[in-house]
Write a protein that binds this DNA or RNA. Structure first.
Lengths: 360, 360
DNA sequence: AATAATTCCGTGTGCGCACACAGTTTTATG
DNA sequence: CATAAAACTGTGTGCGCACACGGAATTATT
């Protein structure tokens, strides 16, 4: 095990001082071209790798990051994501990164804008946020771009801006996956329903992508034996209305035996289906939130697709860390695994700590 | 953002020197009880957390670890696991851990013993290995225990010894999971077959556990509508024999329409089934090796259960790191998620870097 | 040619900690 | 009571690096 190469070793071999090597490595200038070349040669020759520990220790200043997220106390999904960010903080704080949290009300576009501006006013070195609302996101992006502040999109992608990275799911592909899972459990001649339990006004792009993906699966396999219908229902918070709606739907389509719920409200559909006694339908939904998990355990939901919110939060911080501290390139799009969760492997995903920690 | 508290801060507040605080924190003794208590009080009061970076930097010595693994060039599964270990190394090397690799021929128990002894002769501070062969593993464990060398079991668990940790899958649960997946695709009245393509002499405990898990699923749901049969076939390397065997089997059981292959040889079953024209059976297998993935992509395998070999290797190193450097407690059993892989989410698991790195 | 302005380069200090060593106080021993 | 032994405590150095500062060599300006 040969000893690690230090800056001192390079300096000696190149016949200069450590200060000069430092200037070369950090591109601080004030080094003659001849010396610069010589130093880089030696660096190459000895295979120098900087000692991150010593480097971070000596650097000794704080790089402030802001995370602008939906209030985690209002929503279990965002609570998970928030937890991932917190874990990321635990890891990178050793390297002098600080993370400040700013929460907005996720049913209030204006609150996002307000909170984001507040966050940016602190002059952070980087920012993490989900660009959920087009108009407001645009404004925030513009401020970032003007100030040269790097930003990472999390959970939701957005066509505008040049984020350091997008971290989240591949919505289209998650639709394809949902189709595959439902298809496996359906027999020829049966009908599957794509059910969107959301406000159609809010109908975000990623929901459309999921539907598109779902359909494309069946188109690709050319399976005409399964018929697909699609419905949107806005009054999902009214149990009785939803039950009535589904009851009608099942009556109209006697062969309807599978549902694909495109967001995390699968539990609402189950509530309604139980009420009207339709217990034999297959159901694929999203997200490991408590209510869904209970129904998964009770064999009422067949599959949940996990969007890994915790991992998203964690990787978001890590990406900023890689960019700001390690000065590594960060992949512009980072799709996280679409985990397939059934009753029998739920615990692994629930208990999984973002136990992974860091130092590149 | 208040500044980090340092040893110096504690020393000042407690009215002692940094050396004394150091002695207390490292339990080196030679500190009067009164002073010790006072220091610990202040530590508590200020919420001191040691600076890992500075700590590792000052520690400045190398902790040698050995990894004794099956030759990764001979088997894609072990290649993946090996890769995980290598990634772990990349991460912990900053903290002064070195990892030396020792490879054995995994069809040769004696070669394991020989290589393990060779590794132990270097007096490592820790060891990582899969206790695949009972007798030989026992000997190695004894040597470790006598020398006080901590060891981590990886991939395979073993009743003897007191490993720092076991890292791998929950075999029983993976069987339950396999049953769930197959069941979802089977109709009432159909038959499922547990197929072991392995040498019965080698029949390891974890294969039995998988079978047990598979059966217990159907027992628990009290579903008598699916019949279960079980077969072992040793001549799996002879394509023709396997095809004949399966042909007979399908003739004997006309309702047979699902297979659960308990190891990574699902592709062999598909080879044979294709040959005899049985293309409509559902199939659940294990492990993301190339041949299996190809069949998954070709819609011939429905589900693969991923045992996360790469993550196993990575976590193995991390566990030793936590124990030896961070001096944290390590969980004695660390089951990794049983990932359900279908054609549509294969890439995520294949391309996934063990991108998670570390510093507690 | 003398001075000023640049360009280039080496030295020194500190980041927070681990550990060796020397120094001081207390207790044991004759 | 003197001395030896043991118990306790403070100081100093180095880990590898980042960066400030000042000095030397070179070039520009009068």
């Amino acid at each position: 095990m040969k000893r690690k190469v230090r800056i001192k070793d390079i300096a000696d071999k190149a016949g200069v001082s450590t200060g000069t090597v430092d200037r070369v490595l950090h591109k601080r200038g004030n080094v003659s071209e001849a010396v610069r070349k010589r130093v880089l040669e030696v660096v190459e020759e000895l295979g120098y790798e900087r000692n991150l520990l010593a480097s971070a220790l000596a650097y000794n200043r704080i790089i402030p990051i802001v995370a602008v997220l939906p209030d985690p106390t209002k929503d279990p999904y965002w609570e998970q994501l928030n937890k991932g960010v917190e874990h990321g903080l635990k890891v990178v704080k050793h390297y002098g990164m600080s993370v400040s949290f700013y929460y907005f009300d996720y049913s209030e576009p204006k609150s996002f804008e307000r909170v984001a501006e507040e966050a940016l006013a602190t002059q952070p070195a980087g920012m993490l946020f989900p660009p959920m609302f087009a108009q407001e996101a645009n404004k925030v992006i513009r401020v970032c771009d003007e100030g040269g502040t790097p930003y990472v999109f999390i959970n939701t992608n957005f066509a505008t801006g040049t984020p350091l990275s997008y971290i989240g799911q591949d919505s289209m592909q998650s639709g394809v996956l949902g189709a595959r899972l439902l298809d496996f459990g359906l027999s020829p001649g049966q009908t599957a329903c794509i059910l969107s339990l959301d406000y159609s006004t809010k109908a975000a792009q990623h929901l459309k992508d999921k539907e598109q993906g779902f359909r494309s699966y069946f188109e690709e396999i050319g399976n005409k034996e399964v018929q697909i219908i699609r419905h949107n229902f806005e009054a999902f918070d009214d149990d009785q209305q939803l039950a009535d709606f589904l009851n009608d739907l099942l009556r109209q389509h006697p062969s309807l035996s599978g549902f694909f719920i495109t967001n995390s409200r699968a539990h609402k559909a189950i509530d309604a289906l139980s009420q009207i006694g339709a217990t034999q339908v297959k159901l694929v939904g999203f997200d490991l939130i408590d209510k869904n998990i209970n129904y998964l355990r009770a064999n009422k939901i067949d599959f949940l697709i996990n969007q890994n919110p915790m991992e998203q939060g964690f990787q978001g911080i890590v990406s900023l860390f890689k960019h700001l501290i390690l000065k590594e390139k960060v992949k512009p799009v980072q799709y996280l695994p679409l985990d397939i969760v059934v009753k029998e492997n739920t615990d692994y995903y629930l208990k999984r700590e973002p136990a992974f920690q860091l130092v590149g």
